[in-house]
C-alpha cells in the first residue's frame, strides 16, 4: 500500500523523511477510553511503528457515545478496552504493531511499560497516574502529552521537561480527595474529546518528526465556543522537586493511593496519601445526579451503579461490591476522583 500515507507525506512539514520517522516510532498510550480511543486511531492511521495501549477497564454501554473504537458487540461481550481497541486498530492498519495491555498502570509497573518508547500519550482519567507518567518521563527524558476533558471543556499541553516545565512545576501534587470534577459526575461531550485528542496527536507527530511541539497550553470550551492558548515557555520552576531535584516520589510509591482488599467483605479500602477532610456537601451536590447520597459529619455513603462507597472524614473510602483492586481503583477515580 504505497499510497497509504501519500497525503500525509505530501504535507511538506512531514514529507518522506518525517513519514519514515513516524514509521520507526514507538508510542505508549496510557488509558484507552475517550481520549485514548481517538488518539490511538489517529496514531494508527498516521502509521506509527508500534503502539502500546494500556487500560484497566472493560467496555460498557455508556462508553459508546464517545469512545470511538468500541462497538455494541464489545459491550455485550464485556471485552476489556485494551483488547477491543487492539482488534479494531489492527483492522484499520495491519502495518502497525499494536499491543493492548490489560493492566492497571501503577508505580510498580509503569516504568517497564513505558520506558522503551519515544513518547507517552495521556489518555488517563486521574491525576495520580499523570504524576506517575510525569515522573517516568522526567526520569527517562521522554516527552509526554497531557490531555483532559470534562463537560464541554478540555485542555492539553506537550511536556518536554529538559528545557520546559514538567507537570510538577505547575502543581506539586494531585488535587485533594473529591475536589475534582469527573466525567462521571458532570458528564462529557464527544466533540471536546476529538478536539483535545487532535491537539495531542498533532504534538506527537511534531515530536516524532523532530520538530518542536507547541509551547502553548490549549484550553477549549466547545459548547461556549471559547478557544484560548496560554504561553508556557517560562513556566519551569527552579525549585521543582521532580525535574530539578530528581525526586521521583510518585514512581517510588511514596505518593500512591493504597488499596487494600477487605477479604470476605466484598470490599476494597482506598487510602489516599492526602488525608485532608473531603467536602461532603460539595461532593454530594456533584454526585447527586449519578447516585443516591447521604452524609453526616463523619462519613458519606454513596450508592452508585451497584457499588456502595463509604467515604470517611479522614479521606479514606471503602468500596463495597468488588474485591478487585483495579475495579475499585476505577470506581474511585470515576466518582471520587483525585
Amino acid at each position: 500500500m504505497a499510497d497509504r500515507y501519500s497525503r500525509q507525506v505530501l504535507f511538506s512539514d512531514i514529507g518522506e523523511v518525517g513519514q519514515e520517522k513516524i514509521r520507526s516510532s514507538r508510542v505508549a498510550l496510557v488509558g484507552c477510553g475517550a481520549l485514548g480511543s481517538v488518539s490511538a486511531e489517529m496514531l494508527t492511521r498516521a502509521g506509527v511503528g508500534k503502539l502500546r495501549l494500556m487500560d484497566r477497564d472493560f467496555v460498557e454501554e455508556s462508553n459508546l457515545q464517545r469512545q470511538s473504537l468500541f462497538t455494541e458487540e464489545h459491550v455485550s461481550k464485556g471485552v476489556p478496552k485494551a483488547a477491543a481497541a487492539e482488534s479494531t486498530l489492527r483492522a484499520i492498519n495491519s502495518e502497525v504493531e499494536i499491543e493492548g495491555v490489560i493492566t492497571d498502570v501503577r508505580w510498580d509497573n509503569i516504568e517497564g511499560l513505558c520506558r522503551d518508547h519515544d513518547i507517552i500519550v495521556d489518555g488517563t482519567d486521574n491525576f495520580e497516574t499523570r504524576f506517575l507518567i510525569n515522573d517516568v518521563a522526567v526520569k527517562h527524558s521522554l516527552p509526554w502529552v497531557y490531555g483532559a476533558c470534562v463537560g464541554s471543556y478540555g485542555i492539553s499541553f506537550a511536556f518536554e521537561s529538559g528545557t520546559f516545565a514538567c507537570l510538577q512545576c505547575l502543581f506539586e501534587r494531585p488535587p485533594e480527595v473529591g475536589t475534582s470534577q469527573t466525567c462521571d459526575t458532570v458528564g462529557i461531550l464527544g466533540p471536546v474529546v476529538h478536539v483535545i485528542a487532535a491537539y495531542q496527536v498533532t504534538q506527537v507527530l511534531k515530536i516524532l518528526t523532530d520538530q518542536s511541539p507547541s509551547r502553548k497550553i490549549l484550553q477549549v470550551d466547545v459548547w461556549n465556543g471559547t478557544w484560548q492558548t496560554l504561553g508556557a515557555e517560562r513556566a519551569k520552576s527552579q525549585q521543582c522537586r521532580c525535574c530539578q531535584q530528581h525526586e521521583f516520589r510518585f514512581l517510588e510509591g511514596e505518593e500512591t493511593t493504597r488499596m487494600t482488599r477487605l477479604c470476605g467483605r466484598g470490599a476494597v479500602q482506598v487510602s489516599p496519601q492526602q488525608k485532608g477532610p473531603p467536602d461532603f456537601h460539595d461532593l454530594s451536590q456533584r454526585l447527586d445526579k449519578s447516585g443516591q447520597v447521604d452524609f453526616n459529619q463523619h462519613m458519606m455513603r454513596i450508592q452508585i451503579e451497584g457499588y456502595e462507597i463509604a467515604l470517611f472524614a479522614d479521606g479514606r473510602s471503602i468500596i463495597r461490591g468488588t474485591e478487585d483492586i483495579s475495579e475499585a481503583r476505577a470506581v474511585y477515580a470515576k466518582y471520587i476522583g483525585n
Binding site: 475517550a34 477497564d57 482519567d125 485542555i155 496560554l230
Partner: peptide, 12 residues
C-alpha cells in the same frame, strides 16, 4: 491575568 484549570477527566 488568565487562570487556567487543569482537569482530571479523559477517562480510561
Amino acid at each position: 491575568v488568565e487562570v487556567v484549570h487543569f482537569v482530571g477527566g479523559g477517562e480510561e
